[in-house]
Design a protein around this nucleic acid. Sequence first.
DNA 1: ACTGTAATTTCTGCATGCAAAAATATCAGA
DNA 2: TCTGATATTTTTGCATGCAGAAATTACAGT
Lengths: 262, 262
Amino acid sequence: MQKYQKLFNLLNIWAQELTHKMTTENILKRRPPTERPAPNVEKRPARQRPLHEAAVDRLRDMIIEGDLAVGERLHEFNLAEALNVSRTPVREAVKLLATEGLVELLPGRGARVAALSAKTISELLEVIGGIERHACELAAERMTSRELARLQRMHERMALHHQAGNLHEYFKLNNEIHVAIVAAAKNAILEATHASLILKARRGRHAALASQARWTEAMAEHDLLMKAFAERDGRKAGEIMFQHDLRTGEVVRQMLKASEGH
Amino acid sequence: MQKYQKLFNLLNIWAQELTHKMTTENILKRRPPTERPAPNVEKRPARQRPLHEAAVDRLRDMIIEGDLAVGERLHEFNLAEALNVSRTPVREAVKLLATEGLVELLPGRGARVAALSAKTISELLEVIGGIERHACELAAERMTSRELARLQRMHERMALHHQAGNLHEYFKLNNEIHVAIVAAAKNAILEATHASLILKARRGRHAALASQARWTEAMAEHDLLMKAFAERDGRKAGEIMFQHDLRTGEVVRQMLKASEGH
DNA sequence: ACTGTAATTTCTGCATGCAAAAATATCAGA
DNA sequence: TCTGATATTTTTGCATGCAGAAATTACAGT
């Protein structure tokens, strides 16, 4: 709980005071070159990935998985301890998550986990729907036959998981299919925009996992979607996708609404 | 050029060494409450806006306005000096600009201004087109008559600027109209997504400023757009907007292509 | 008990220290 | 003069210091 942090710092100052002169001398009299190679060999910092990046990912997961409750304050010190880094990378990570909309910056008071209201998830899926509709239209024109075939195979595997009642695998493939369609549109900006929105929507995704009725319905919509792609009818595919997303949004919205009411 | 930074630091250490004990004592013997109010009165930190935020905006402008050339390395120390802050807020700002796509992070080597290729601007405007088409459809349904009237007035003012040959004011209003239409769609996520894309596209905007032929054409398209809105025909408005954006994209792309070739 | 105020503690925001990586300069040997 | 090794400088990435703001607690006066 970071009690007496100031006192802790003070003790550190005393400790440093004692060793300060030595440290300064170390800087002045640089280590002779002869002894440099040896000690460096055993040292294995082994860090290729920047800490702030790891921090972003860890924190994002913590928020999406609900480890950090909505509205909870993000304490730099505590998070830094939890992630075993200093406050600096944590601060950078929090700023990034703020641009993603996962956390809310309180000027002068840090940040807290942003609320994910039923309204927000609804808006999110409306936008995702628009983007995926656009992606379908472009993909129908631009996708190679290889890509189309791959999509078909993914779809079939998803159908198998549906029949087997394997909800988790079904959802995973479902997500991959959506991503693959956007990728087939061959527009990097579209892909990146979509990815960032999908990420935010993931927070509400677990809510959708609960609806069995919607599951079967969604499967049927995906069937129609693949038919439209087979005919290379982008307009039709887009419309199906759009409605598919809007319906998903409505289901998630109602579930969140119900849990909000409670 | 940050020559001899290390030496500079070293001198600082010596200076601190001299005052260190005093500082420590100041911390121990906290200032008595009686003399606290007085010295604080004259102090005017006068900073309500976080430095890192100001840094983001300044840097973004510098990149968009071309003060920082494409591919140029971003040196924390230099930028910090230029903006009169320390490296910390600069680092935070650079990270944010990286998520916006304006700069490119080079792991272990800082960052550089990201290239804005003809392809990228083309993709950007394709996505913006898709989003604005969607916005038109939603706006036609959701916008109030007040909003529609306001849009009409903006359009008329823009037409005046067009006739007067006032390019700068024309573009400003043009931008405001696009933003207003997206706002009328009543979807905060859509609005935010659009805003962030527009921001990136601003980098290529000055290129479009040059084309007089496109200017007149674009004005005609806006006329059609307003007619469609008057009829509350979202589908039609959306299509017009989409084509409008694609054409703008094509013009900017060709201009950038030409300047790339040089 | 309740409210407002002062004292205390915690926390944020920024500055700066420092080790190690990267870039650059130096120079010996071909 | 070029090449490659080595020394030097610069730069980054992270850790940590510290002032002041915010939050909390303690407490006096009602």
